[in-house]
Design a protein around this nucleic acid. Structure first.
Length: 623
RNA sequence: GCGCCCGUAGCUCAACUGGAUAGAGCACCUGACUACGGAUCAGGAGGUUCGGGGUUCGAACCCCUGCGGGCGUGCCA
């Protein structure tokens, strides 16, 4: 590899000039290309060499200029800006890519590690929405990025298929479903069940409001207790009402028939009541069937699927072991707890006083089981940032239990997806449904394709295929280009824009390359190309962009961050478009130049393919 | 109350974790060879990086403080 070679040369120069080798040569692509092709950061070297940066840069520039692929070196403000021999840049990129495209851009960042990535973790009572799409895409892309970094990755999903929320839709169906099925109603299973979940919430609210109406004293009591804030001022009536109503969710759930029945149903489920279980089996199967269809449409997949209905009891035995080891202790009320205050966390109950499991109990069991079953070196959870505290607690518990791999557990806490008019609330129907969104975006892509196909030659099934591919790629790219940890804004109107920094632009660039390569029908082996004819700045920049791919994939793996790949693709595509604009390929008269440029195009196409592959984006040969 | 996260161009986001002149896209303005596919390219305008202190050769990034927003703080998930 060219970059490795330069790093070695630089280190030799450092040895000659300063008498010591450095642990890592800080070789970077400069943020501004006018500085040079590559740059060595003298400030970084200064730390290790304990000498002033400017002096280091000047000395190093003197030693290294003109050696091998380095054409010239200039010391500027503590940096050593390198200008490379053009042929080295092209030889270092084009044949490198073409000889083994699938190897180009792989790295050793996670070599030999076996890792599990858990993502999606849906509730099996409603269809997926935009928020799920972020974890679906992030988790899937991350798995690909880690594999590319040498890891063996197990993609895991966990269906949250038990609990109160599941009983809600079951109860609503039991009461008002009239024996309908997804087939009889013509709905996808997850949507069918989700509608009953919404219906439950609606009816529950009605019953709750009626109950409040009939029991004014109850609200009065609540007001007496919560009506003043800490500074003894009156809480505004409207706000108090809202809080009061919200408190029904748990505290007063059993005051309303529907709520009480829901709790009874959960108990019946846990007691394995055959009727309840039968209903549960049926409805869960409907949802899962619908959901798995959505996964196919989204292009995500899993190697193993856990179900909470199976895992929820796994943690008990582990908690008991921990109790014996003294990691946990039993409180007076029989609840089992851990005190994490020494680690800046709080006390946390890990098993209820009645011996039943809670969320952490389940996760304690599942985490250990996963590690043991699959012999994992580490685990990653792609879960929203509202659960940061939960994972801090979980990881600390693993550490206290003495698992060596505890330090290789990582919560990739992604931010919320907001809409222009606020946040999504499933109860208020302000969610963006995944299936609908896919269809909608595909529809808009169809318009764009038609606008470019005035003769209407594209057959309808091909049209459908292209539209869905463009739509999916656009959504993937849009959700992945933002740094995972940050909250993001999703404007549905923008999601269908095909100009600018979009997935469609990347697809377009690729399709353009493919048709060009096809039309050329030139299979000259890379070694037979005369690359010395490539002299244009735009050719050079494109090749440099290609060279930066490996560093990018390594960084993505190191930081568990797909967005750096997205940024890379945007820059690569920009360089590509600039290249096209100034450097004719098929129309080029000189045969050697035409072949060399075509080689550059073939290499670029492979890198676009590799990059999009890591984001899980589908591609098209024609658009 | 306490804890964590965030605040960068009108809008949506970057900035390789402390390094050069803070960069893209959208929107706005001006241009481009009858276009190897114009879903493009060239250019313009747009910034006190929320305010105020500090740390150092150097700060959007670290520390303190104030303001604004989000999320947590369950024997819920």
């Amino acid at each position: 590899m060219l970059l490795d070679q330069i790093a070695v040369l630089a280190n030799q120069a450092i040895k000659e000039a300063f008498g010591v080798r450095v642990s890592r040569v800080p070789l970077e692509f400069p943020q501004n290309r006018s500085f040079g092709d590559l740059t060595i950061n003298g400030f970084m070297l200064a730390r290790e060499l304990k000498l002033p940066p400017a002096g280091i840069a000047e000395e190093l520039a003197r030693c290294i200029g003109g050696i091998g692929p380095i054409d010239s070196a200039a010391a500027v403000d503590g940096y050593v800006n390198l200008r490379l021999v053009p042929e080295a840049i092209f030889q270092g990129s084009i044949p490198q890519v073409l000889h083994d495209p699938d190897r180009f851009g792989t790295n050793e960042e996670r070599a030999g590690k076996k890792l599990m990535v858990e993502y999606s973790a849906p509730n099996t009572n409603k269809p997926q929405h935009l928020g799920h799409m972020r974890t679906d895409f992030l988790g899937h892309s991350l798995s690909l990025i880690l594999e590319n970094a040498g890891a063996e990755v197990v993609k895991a999903n966990l269906y949250n298929d038990r609990g109160t929320h599941i009983c809600k839709s079951m109860l609503a169906y039991q009461r008002w479903g009239e024996g309908a099925t997804p087939e009889s109603s013509g709905k996808k299973g997850d949507h069918f069940v989700g509608d009953f979940y919404v219906l439950f919430e609606k009816r529950f609210k009605e019953e709750r409001d009626a109950w409040i109406e009939a029991n004014p004293d109850h609200y009065a009591a609540y007001r007496d207790k919560h009506g003043k804030d800490r500074k003894d001022r009156d809480v505004p009536e409207e706000k108090l009402r809202t809080k009061y109503a919200a408190s029904f969710k748990d505290e007063y759930f059993d005051k309303v028939d529907l709520g009480r029945e829901c709790q009874e149903m959960l108990l019946a489920w846990e007691a394995e009541d055959p009727q309840v279980r039968a209903l549960w089996e049926t409805m869960t199967a409907w949802v899962i069937e619908g959901m798995e269809k959505t996964y196919v449409d989204l292009g995500v997949s899993f190697d193993v699927v856990y179900r909470e209905s199976e895992t929820w009891q796994w943690g008990r035995a582990k908690v008991m072991e921990g109790l014996e080891k003294g990691v946990f202790y039993k409180r007076d009320d029989e609840a089992i707890e851990i005190d994490l205050r020494a680690d800046k966390l709080d006390k946390k109950v890990v098993l209820r006083s009645d011996g039943t499991a809670i969320y952490v109990t389940q996760d304690i069991g599942t985490t250990i089981r996963k590690a043991e079953e699959h012999g994992l070196d580490g685990q990653v959870w792609v879960v929203g940032n509202e659960q940061i505290y939960h994972f801090q607690v979980l990881f600390k518990i693993m550490e206290r239990l003495g698992y060596g791999w505890a330090e290789d557990l990582y919560h990739l806490a992604y931010g919320m997806v907001n809409l222009p008019d606020g946040r999504m609330k499933s109860r208020e129907g302000t969610v963006v449904d995944a299936d609908n969104l896919l269809t909608e975006v595909a529809g808009l892509a169809t318009e764009e394709i038609k606008a470019r196909d005035p003769t209407g030659e594209i057959p309808s099934d091909e049209m459908e295929h292209r539209a869905r591919t463009i739509g999916l790629a656009s959504l993937r790219f849009m959700l992945l280009k933002v740094s995972p940890k940050n909250d993001m804004m999703f404007d549905p109107a923008d999601s269908v824009s095909f100009d600018g920094d979009t997935g469609a632009r990347v697809l377009y660039a690729y399709a353009r390359l493919r048709t060009m390569i096809n039309d050329a029908a030139d299979e000259t082996p890379p070694d037979e190309l005369d690359l010395t004819v490539l002299t244009h700045e735009n050719e050079r920049n494109l090749a440099l962009s290609i060279l930066s791919f490996s560093g990018t994939t390594a960084r993505a793996a190191r930081d568990l961050n797909p967005s750096v790949i997205a940024s890379f693709l945007i820059e690569l595509v920009r360089d590509l478009n600039r290249f096209y604009d100034r450097c004719p390929v098929l129309k080029e008269a000189d045969e050697a130049t035409r072949k060399a440029r075509l080689g550059l195009c073939r290499a670029a196409a492979e890198v676009v393919r590799r990059g999009t592959q890591l984001l899980g984006m589908p591609l098209l040969d024609r658009m």
